[in-house]
Amino acid sequence: MTTFPFSDYIITGIFCLVVATTVAGALVAALSTRIIRGVTGLMICCLGLAGLYYFLNSPFLALMEILIYVGAVCVTIIFGVMLAEPDEPAGSESRSHYLLWGGLALLVSAVVFATVASLSLHGPWAAPAERVTDGSIRAIGLSLLTTYSMAFELISLVLFVAIIGALVIARAGRTKE
């Protein structure tokens, strides 16, 4: 197997494409007034994120991102949207109201962004001495069931509580008279 010609340029190009997909998806998700387009934007954003994970040398995480976030979470959100209301753009709120909440949201997100950015730029990063795992599925599985088994079990507990909660909510309207 020989190396691909201009592979550096191609890899850079694909990386830019992935970043652009993530940002564009996020923008569509945030700016769109139709909720169904918003979910589609979220899906595109997740696809881009999967690409970023791939560039961080974890293809397993990338595929899981697609399987879970695109295949399950977005579909479930859309299912919720379908059950909730017809997708007409809402235009009843007054403009000043709109501006107030938008400004507030902008302020909060700017503060959060600035904090995270300054932390990541100036904070102390403990560099690991050597690579802890090789990132293979075997290593991930072993660490999930040994070192991180507590967190793993706690996540399943969270999901369990969510399912029970959903059942309770869904059950409310179903009692027999």
Partner: peptide, 20 residues
Amino acid sequence: DIGLLFVFAFGSINVMALML
């Protein structure tokens, strides 16, 4: 080496497309 996961991950987009 994660071919099966690859198939299932991309196969799951199908629902989304039909639905959209």
